[in-house]
């Protein structure tokens, strides 16, 4: 038996095309030894949930800079729950004002990373909080 690999999906829900952060993070996860599925810009929450299940990922990292996170992030969590995949951990990043944190945590988002977050801190968070299934 080989070591269990952490699988992560990095996704950009909504219409926003600012993918610098998502792409940098995808590379960083690869360099940290994770298997990363990057699904590109302009994904609907439905597409993200289905892809996450087909790819059997441990973690979905959502990135949104348009301000639509209050709808999009909780919707992904909700859809995973509907598809009996609530064990998949969902985190978010982008331009997220602090006043929205509580609402997002409450909806099931496990962590939020905003501009200035260090890549290493994000990787550490994953190592500490994500147990490959």
């Amino acid at each position: 038996m080989t070591e269990r690999k952490i699988r992560i999906m990095v996704a950009k829900p909504g219409l926003d095309g600012h993918d610098r952060g998502a792409r940098v993070l995808a590379r960083c996860f690869r360099d940290a030894g994770f298997e990363v599925i990057y699904t590109g810009c302009h994904q609907t929450p439905e597409q993200i949930a289905v892809s996450a299940i087909q790819e059997d990922v441990d973690l979905v990292g959502l990135s949104c800079l348009s301000g639509a996170h209050r709808y999009l992030f909780p919707r992904v969590v909700e859809l995973l729950k509907e598809k009996e995949a609530e064990d998949i951990c969902v985190i978010g990043g982008g331009i997220i004002p602090e006043q929205d944190f509580e609402m997002l945590y409450h909806s099931g988002i496990k962590a939020i990373f905003t501009p200035g977050a260090h890549l290493d801190d994000i990787v550490d968070w994953v190592r500490q909080n994500v147990e490959p299934k």
Binding site: T44, L65, S66, A68, Y71, L72
Partner: peptide, 11 residues
């Protein structure tokens, strides 16, 4: 449009 959900007027 369904794709536009949550985005209106945001940015």
């Amino acid at each position: 449009d369904p794709k536009a959900r949550g985005e209106c007027g945001k940015c």
